[in-house]
Design a protein around this nucleic acid. Structure first.
Lengths: 338, 338
DNA sequence: CTGTTAGCGCCTTCAC
DNA sequence: GTGAAGGCGCTAACAG
């Protein structure tokens, strides 16, 4: 391994001078700089970042802690995060929690030991508070993504769950639906609470009665929705739903799979709408009516907030940005033929 | 920050003893171990990995260098990689090259400085040889992903481009197509060369003539395919293709978009097949006929090979594994109605 | 503008 | 079974 000592010897200067060159110090004559630079290139020297971190306490590594990179929402978040990070010379450490508190805890411990400079995280839910406290305790800057946690103060990038839900439900109502089911994520996650609240209030505002038999809860991740769907379609005709609002893309997909299993076609026998798109490139093969969030911006802005916080360029007050979803009407909520 | 010195003082032992405890050394009495362990937990001590790396030259960080996490193929690769890495206590650094040699070079330099323990990479093409030589020069273990590079010896995880292409083309021929266009990736990438070769040979074996006007090349990434499509559909009727084989999913999507722009419907006016699926969950909304590769296994096996190599558990000979795609026939290549 | 000294937190080596 | 000394590669602080 080539070190500053090797460079120093060969260039006939002190190691400190080499250090100054690689750190672009101004306090150095152009001639020595060039001399040293030449040797650096000749020997292919690359600074050892472990040694640097040991002193600076900086690693230029950020952690992106999401639930599942496989979810197109988070895929695009990750891309936005990576792009912004690269601009500022940071690298991204990727972790998937699968909505699991224990995994989240494991990763938090790992990244604490790695000494990442900051964390952009979509917490698994309110229980994450305990994990986040560890970050706070060690003064690791972090930015929350997509989900709020009561009692945790931080910069945060959110989507407008309330508005998105309202518009989706209103769309269904406009299509003539009066019995709309909600398959929600866990109420321990703030987005699920918002969507629940908006669902209820939007129905009421439209003078539709809220039937609690039509509301159910399931994991945001990859649980199958067979039982829930079975229950819904087993309801007596007068309360059986004609449309479903799924709280996210995975839930929608699992619902559709379950519906198919029981012989129901979407949208012929059941309309369905949801949050989040299901494809990495929007609009290629339109099927799901959805509230599509600007996921790339979630990641991009999140990392920007984070780096500003790390580098002391952020305002003292925490920032909260709420990004609006775009409602895209597609095949899955086509008008019911009378 | 809590260090081994703080622990040592509080536990009335030497720092060295603390070091032995955190490294699970056998040379230590059960009673001191417990005493020290208690203080470690009390103070919430976490080892500083920069200091450790400085000595051990290990970081427990692996680099995953892919072209674009947004491509569902690589999304699933990343998930497989991350899962395997976690099993062995490694973390994954994610980078997107966008098929760009310069970006790849940037990242290689960054990860060299980060001292990652190893790299799993999908090279941007044959030109990557120069970048890979840097890894070799510094003895960084690496495993190639999806793409071969002549003159580079390493463990490698590949898909069977030849077989996949052959089956897709044969399927089209069976559907009655005689004029099949190829929109390929850059021939500087081994997968494109394989697909090219297989396309030609399969046509010949079926006694179909190869028309070079039907063969074109485009980026694997996100270039638009308008010009190529325009050229294809402008051909005189007797040579105009009735089906397109797109070398990957993004090319297929761009081709379909272009076709739509010019008023062509898939599959009514043009059939299309490609490599790689387009959705993160296979089979939900079937449209594209595709050779679907076991992407998760690419990542999972790649990381396994890499860790074995790093930890000296790999055989001396380099391993090459070729994973077979699954051909899934769907809407986009439906039979032509006569 | 350049060099010297000391130390970041930990572990290897060698004593005891 | 435990501890002291020294050094991993680099840079802050000071000296010249």
């Amino acid at each position: 391994m080539v070190t500053i000592y090797d460079i120093a010897k060969r260039a006939n200067v002190s190691p400190m001078t080499v250090s100054r060159v690689i750190n672009n110090s101004k306090q150095i004559s152009e001639s020595t700089r060039q001399k040293v630079q030449a040797v650096i290139e000749e020997l292919g020297y690359i600074p050892n970042s472990a040694a640097r971190s040991l002193i600076s306490k900086k690693t230029k590594i950020l952690s992106l802690l999401i639930t599942d990179i496989t979810n197109p929402f988070f895929t695009r978040v990750a891309r936005g995060a990576e792009d912004k990070a690269k601009q500022f010379g940071y690298q991204i450490l990727l972790s998937n929690t699968d909505e699991d508190f224990k995994k989240e805890e494991d990763y938090i411990d790992m990244l604490l030991s790695t000494n990442v400079d900051g964390v952009l995280l979509a917490p698994t839910g309110d229980q994450s508070k305990k994990n986040i406290k560890k970050l706070i305790k060690r003064d690791i800057p972090f930015v929350l993504l997509d989900r709020e946690i009561e009692g945790i103060e931080s910069d945060i990038v959110l989507g407008d769950s309330y508005e998105g839900t309202r518009k989706l439900i209103e769309h269904l109502i406009q299509q003539g639906h009066k019995k709309i089911a909600l398959i929600n994520g866990p109420l321990s996650v703030s987005t699920a609470r918002e969507r629940h609240k908006s669902y209820i209030e939007t129905l009421k505002l439209s003078n539709l009665k809220v039937n609690h038999d039509l509301i159910s809860e399931i994991g945001y991740n990859k649980d199958d929705a067979d039982t829930i769907i079975k229950n819904l379609i087993s309801l007596p005709k007068f309360e059986r739903p004609t449309a479903i609002f799924a709280a996210n893309n995975f839930i929608a997909v699992n619902a559709i799979k379950a519906l198919r299993k029981f012989g129901y076609e979407v949208p012929k026998d059941m309309s369905i709408v949801c949050f989040e798109d299901f494809e990495p490139i929007t609009g290629f093969n339109p099927f799901l009516t959805a509230a599509i969030q600007p996921a790339y911006s979630f990641g991009y802005t999140g990392i920007q907030f984070l780096i500003e916080r790390i580098e002391g360029k952020a305002p003292k007050e925490y920032r909260k940005i709420v990004l609006s979803p775009e409602i895209v009407i597609r095949e899955s909520s086509r008008l019911i033929k009378k």
